[in-house]
Nucleic acid binder design. Sequence first.
DNA 1: GATGAATGAGGGTTCATTCAT
DNA 2: AATGAATGAACCCTCATTCAT
Lengths: 211, 211, 211, 211
Amino acid sequence: MLYENFENLPEEKKKRIIGACMEEFARNGYDKASTNNMVKKAGISKGAIFHYFGNKKNLYLYILDYIISYMTKRLYNIIGTPSTDVFERIMNTGLAKIRLAYEEPLMYEVLYMAFISTPEELKEEIQRRYNKIYAENVPAFIENIDMSRFRKDINPAKALETIILLIDALTNKYINIYRNKSANEVLMEIDKMVEEYREYFEILKKGLYSY
Amino acid sequence: MLYENFENLPEEKKKRIIGACMEEFARNGYDKASTNNMVKKAGISKGAIFHYFGNKKNLYLYILDYIISYMTKRLYNIIGTPSTDVFERIMNTGLAKIRLAYEEPLMYEVLYMAFISTPEELKEEIQRRYNKIYAENVPAFIENIDMSRFRKDINPAKALETIILLIDALTNKYINIYRNKSANEVLMEIDKMVEEYREYFEILKKGLYSY
Amino acid sequence: MLYENFENLPEEKKKRIIGACMEEFARNGYDKASTNNMVKKAGISKGAIFHYFGNKKNLYLYILDYIISYMTKRLYNIIGTPSTDVFERIMNTGLAKIRLAYEEPLMYEVLYMAFISTPEELKEEIQRRYNKIYAENVPAFIENIDMSRFRKDINPAKALETIILLIDALTNKYINIYRNKSANEVLMEIDKMVEEYREYFEILKKGLYSY
Amino acid sequence: MLYENFENLPEEKKKRIIGACMEEFARNGYDKASTNNMVKKAGISKGAIFHYFGNKKNLYLYILDYIISYMTKRLYNIIGTPSTDVFERIMNTGLAKIRLAYEEPLMYEVLYMAFISTPEELKEEIQRRYNKIYAENVPAFIENIDMSRFRKDINPAKALETIILLIDALTNKYINIYRNKSANEVLMEIDKMVEEYREYFEILKKGLYSY
DNA sequence: GATGAATGAGGGTTCATTCAT
DNA sequence: AATGAATGAACCCTCATTCAT
C-alpha cells in the first residue's frame, strides 16, 4: 500500500496532519510551503512527515488527492439528484462549486493553485489527475440530460459546451469577486447569483432552443 | 531615469539579458527563478544584474513592463483596424491573443502567471499594472462598436459581457489545448478556430440579435 | 527554553562553538564577524549555527550573555568578601577587572566593544543588559561600605564618585597599557599596580578624610 | 606629494568631498561606511575617489588626519592663552573639548570611534597618530604650569596625573550625557559644568596643596 | 583626469532531506 | 516507529576596487 506508514495512523492524527499540511500549502503554495511549519502545527516530528510520505512532492500529491476525493464527493452531495434540465444542472453545479469554495476555502485554494500555477516538477502528475477527474465526471455529468429542446440545426455537443463555458466563466467570476468575503455573506447572496445566471440563460435559450 | 544603468547598455546586450531573465521567470515563476541562472545564461557577472535593476523585484517588474509594452503594441498591430461588428472585433482580439501566445510563449507565460498566481510582495505593483492596462484598453475596445442589432429587451452591457465571457473562455481553451504544440502548427489551425468561433457566434446571435 | 537546540548539546561541543564564535566576534566586532569563519573553526556545518541560534543577532546576544554571566561570577569570585574600606573595595574591584581582562582577553574584548561601539541593531538589547548589570551590581557594591571617615563638609556621593572616576580611569589605563602583554607578565606586575593605586589613594584621602 | 591628485583640486570641491566622506564615516563607522554614498553625496564619480586616495583605508586616514589637524588647531584657538593655574588649565581644556564636540559633532564622532573601536587593519596607523598627538601636545600642555602650590611630599607628575585622570573622566561623562542634546542646550549649561568641576577641584586641592 | 560599468567573493539565511539514536 | 539534530547547496544581495573609455 502506498503511504501505508501514514494510512495506519489513528484517524484523529491523520486529520491533524492533513489539516496542518493543507493550511500550509494553501497559504504559501507548493514551493514556499515549509515542512517545518507543517510538523510544528501538526505536532509531529520532522522525520515523521518524511517517514510517512517520503518527500515533499509525495506529500503534496497525497494532500491533493485527498482534496480531490473529498471535494468530488461533497460536490455530488450538495448537488443531490441532478436536474434533467440542462441549464439547471449546469447552474446547480456552478452554485455547488461556489458553496464548496466557501465551505472549504483551504481546499479550494490548494486545488485552484494546483491547476493554475503548477510547479514544473509536479506538472505531469497534476495533469494526470486533471485528466482522471475529467474522464470520471464528465460522462456522468452529461448522462440523462434533456437536450430535446435544442434546435435541430445545432450540434448538441456544441450547444452544451456553449452553456458550460459561459456558466463556468460566471462561476469563476463570482468566486473571485467574493473571495475575501465570509462564507456567510456569500451564501446570503446566492439568490442574487441565481437571478443573474438566469438572465444569461434567457439569452442562451433564445439562441439554443426551438420554440 | 529609472533603470538607466540598464537602458544605456547596447541594444544587443539588453536583448540578451531580457531574454535570459524572461526565460528563467517563465520556467520557474518569480520565487523560484534564480538570478544565478539568469546571469549565467546572459553571460554577465553576478553583480551586474543588481547594478542594473537593484533587486530581484525591480528586475521582475522591469521584465513585466517590457512584456506588457511589447504585447500591447503587438496586439494592436495584429488586430489592425478593429471591426465595428461586435463579434468580429472580440474574435479578432481572441485570435490575436492566441497568435501572440505562440509567437511569444515565454512572454505569455510570464504575463499569465503574473496575473494568476501573484507572489505576495508583488501583488500591489501587479494590481497597479492590471488597472492601468484595463483603463487604457477597455474604453478603446468598446469604442465605435456597433450594438444596434441587439434586441431591444436586452441590456447591452449584459449582451456584451455574454459575448466576452464566452469568447475569452474559448480563447483560453484554445491556448491551453495547443500549449505544447509549435507556433507553426497552431498558426496553421487558425482557420479551424475561426470556423469554430463562428459556430458559437451563430448561437449567441440568435439569442442577442433581433431579426 | 530559549536556544534549547544549543543548550542540549554536549558540554564539550558547546564550549567549542562558544569559543569559536567568541574569538570571531572579538577579532572582528559584530558586523565583520563572519559566521562562515565561526562554523569552520567550530567544525560544524553552516546550517547548524542557525539551527542553534536562529540568526547572527541572537547568536551574538547569546555569546554576550554568556560572557556577562561568566565575567560577573568570576569577578565576585576573585574579589571574595569585599573590604569595608571604600578605597580597598574599589581598588580590589579594579584589580579584579584587570586580572579578568587578562584571564579572558576574548571575553573582555567582546564585552568592551559591546558597550563602547554598539551596532545600531543591537543598541536596545545591549542597553537592556547594561541596565540590568547596573541594577544588580551597583547596590551591592555600595552596601556596607564605610564612609564614616569622609569629612563632614563633603557630599558622600560626590566623594564616592571622585574615587570611582579616578580608580576606573586608572584601571582602564592599566588594561590598555598592558593590552599586548601576556597574562603572566601582567599578573606579575599587580603588586606594582597596587602600590600605584595606593599613591593616588593618599592624595584622595587627604582631600576626603578628616583627620 | 601624498594625495596630490586630491590636494590639487579646487578648495571648494575638496571641502565638499571631505564633508561627504566625514559624514558617511561618522554615521556608519569605517567598515560600514559606503564609498558609494560618499561619491553620491559629494557629486563625484566612483572612480574619482580611488583616483584621489587609492583605497578606502587611505581615504579614511586622510579624513582622520584632516580632523586631527582641524581639531587640534581649533582646540588651541578656543583655549587661547593657557592659564598658569593647573586646575584652570586642565578644566579649560576639558571645556574646550566639550565645546568642540558640539561644534563639530561629525568630526568628534569619527575621532572618538577611531581611538575606541579601531578596525584591525587600521590599528597600527591609528596608534601611530595617537602617539604623535600625545608627543606633540603633552609637553606644551605641561609647559609653564604652576605647580608651586603642590605639597612637597607629593610627586608632581603623579599630582598632575591625578588631576588629568579625574578631569578627563568628568569631561567624557559630560560629553556622553549630553550627546543627544543640541549644541545650544549644551553651551548654555557650561556654567553648571564649571561649578561641578570646581567642586571636585576643592577635594583635590585639599589632597594636593599645602596650605 | 575623470568616468561609472563591471566584477565576484563573500555576506547572512533558508530548507528539504538524511540518519544515528 | 519515531525523533530532531545536522547537513550543505542554493538563495538574494553588497561592495571595494578595477579599467576601458
